[in-house]
Amino acid sequence: MAEAASGAHEDETTRRDFIFIAAGAAAAVGAAATVWPFIDQMNPAADTLALSTTEVDLSVVELGQQVRVLWQGKPVFVRHRTPAEIASAQRDDYATLKDPQLDSQRLLQSNGQAGRPEWLVLQASCTHLGCVPTFVEGSAFGGWFCPCHGSDYDTSGRIRRGPAPHNLYVAPYVYMNDTTIRIG
């Protein structure tokens, strides 16, 4: 009977064509909806997302030292800069920079308020391929040096030499009080 119908109206769109397309479309949507949970399960889980802030007590960091803390599993530098380092960072605001940024911009808190020049909070991943730069050692600019491919950062964490395309990213942070910051 189906043959008879299609023979009679060969060029016409039949009810059956509509049903085929509708059923195919519904199956495609159904397949996508079934596959999606199996893909999405690989995204960061709720407990991983919940660990998204870290608090740091600044009073334990001596002048001229830095601490490395883990934030979202990634290392973050909190550096207590000396007046000489601050001066050097500000002086170089107008040096030839690959990724020009003022030192004061790099100190901004995540709520938009100005930071304090003695505390620099940076993500400790080289913007080249994610290695952790060393503290001062090897750096011709007194900042950080990446041992992997030789990227050299100044005392403001700006890229000065080497393959990295960007400055060390500033970690989002705010001051909770005078001696505590919250990262994230």
């Binding site: 893909i39 690989m42 995204n43 960061p44 991983t48 979202q72 599993g73 391929l129 994610g130």
Partner: peptide, 29 residues
């Protein structure tokens, strides 16, 4: 693993999402 997953992060627009999707977090863990 860090270097290779960071390579995927170099892809424009979707790189960061793919990277986090692959790592299941914000770092290799």
């Amino acid at each position: 693993a860090t270097v290779i997953t960071n390579l995927l992060g170099a892809l424009p627009l979707v790189g960061e999402s793919i990277k986090n999707w692959l790592m299941g977090g914000f770092a290799i863990d």
